[in-house]
Simulated assay, not measured.
Amino acid sequence: MTGRSRFRALILFVIFIAARATAFAAGNIKIAIDAEFGIPHSTSAQAVRTGAQVAVNEINSAGGVLGRKLEIIERDNRAVPARSLNNIRELAADPDVVAVMCGRYSPVVVELLPEIHRLKMPMLDPWAAADPITENDYSPNYVFRLSLRDSWALQVMMRHALKMGIRKVGILLPNTEWGRSSLKAAEKTATTDTHQEIAATQWYNWGDSGTIMAERYDAVRKTGAEALIFVANDREAVILTREMSRMPKEQRLPIIAHWGLTGGQFFEQSGTALKAIDLTVVQTYSFLGKSDPIARRVLTGLKSVTGSDDPRKVVSPVGVAHAYDLVHLLARAIKQARSTDRQAVRNAMENLGPYQGLVRQLDKPFTAKRHDALTVNEAFMARFADDGAIEPVIKIRH
Rank of each mutant, 00 (worst) to 15 (best):
M157Y: 09
S151W: 03
A130D: 00
P126V: 12
D125L: 08
W152M: 09
L183P: 01
E115C: 05
D193M: 11
S181M: 14
P114A: 11
M157N: 07
D193H: 12
P132S: 06
E177W: 00
T192D: 04
S147D: 15
K163T: 05
W127H: 02
W127A: 02
E177L: 09
Y138I: 01
A190I: 08
R180M: 11
W127Q: 08
G165E: 13
K184Q: 15
L124Y: 14
H160C: 12
P140W: 03
G179S: 07
N175V: 07
F144G: 06
K120D: 06
I116S: 09
L112V: 11
M164Q: 14
Q196A: 11
K163H: 15
L112N: 11
I133R: 09
P126D: 05
R145I: 06
E187Y: 08
T134S: 13
M164H: 01
M158W: 02
D137P: 09
P140A: 00
Q155M: 02
D125W: 02
E135I: 06
Y138V: 02
A161F: 09
M164N: 14
I133E: 08
T134H: 02
D131A: 06
L162W: 08
P132K: 15
S139P: 00
I166G: 03
R145W: 12
D150V: 06
R159I: 00
L183V: 01
M123Q: 03
E135R: 15
V169F: 03
P140Q: 01
H195L: 14
Y142A: 00
A129R: 00
Q196C: 06
L146Y: 04
Y142T: 02
A185L: 05
G170Q: 02
T134C: 07
D137Y: 10
P174E: 09
M158N: 11
P126M: 01
N136W: 14
L148S: 05
E115K: 06
D137R: 15
K184T: 14
Y142V: 03
M157F: 03
I133F: 07
R167Y: 07
T189A: 13
V143R: 03
P114D: 04
D125R: 05
E115W: 04
E115H: 02
A161P: 04
R167D: 14
S147E: 07
V143W: 05
S182R: 04
R180N: 15
A185C: 13
V143M: 01
S151N: 13
P140Y: 08
R167V: 10
L119V: 01
I116D: 00
A161G: 10
E187N: 15
A161D: 07
G170K: 06
T194P: 05
A185I: 12
D150W: 06
R149Q: 14
R149W: 01
I133N: 03
T194H: 08
L148P: 00
Y142D: 07
E135D: 13
K163Q: 08
D193F: 10
E115N: 04
I171G: 00
M121A: 05
D131C: 06
I166W: 00
W127I: 04
N175F: 07
M164C: 13
W178Q: 14
P132H: 13
N141M: 05
K168Q: 08
V156W: 00
M121D: 01
R145E: 12
R180C: 08
L183S: 04
A185H: 14
